[in-house]
């Protein structure tokens, strides 16, 4: 199932990737080759087989409900590009 350039553009937008005008075709071809592999996988008959969400059949490990973390804001904010009044600052966003 080959992708169109529009679909590639949409995927790029969703992933916040910028694809320069000249490289749209190259990107599409690379994605197509992955999709060929997917198509091949999808052609396997899996009737009656329970889907696996993870490659290992192991259950999640759980932690007890206890507070184990302390306040390390100063350390974390030391590497943030900008912080003020305890807040991380980011370019203005209003949805």
């Amino acid at each position: 199932m080959p992708l169109s350039n529009e679909e590639v553009a949409r995927l790029a937008r969703l992933a916040r990737l910028s694809i320069p005008d000249g490289s749209a075709d190259a990107t599409r071809k690379q994605l197509d080759s992955i999709f060929v592999l997917m198509t091949q996988l999808q052609s396997v008959d899996t009737t009656g087989i329970e889907p696996m969400s993870h490659p290992q059949e192991l259950p999640a490990r759980l932690r007890e409900d206890a507070v184990t973390e302390t306040n390390r804001r100063a350390t974390f904010q030391a590497i943030a590009p900008q912080a003020e009044a305890g807040l991380y600052l980011v370019p203005k966003v209003i949805e």
Partner: peptide
């Protein structure tokens, strides 16, 4: 939480 009060034209983030 995003705080949209003005921080020099930026938004503040409280996680």
């Amino acid at each position: 939480k995003s705080l949209h009060e003005d921080f020099h034209g930026m938004s503040g983030i409280d996680l």
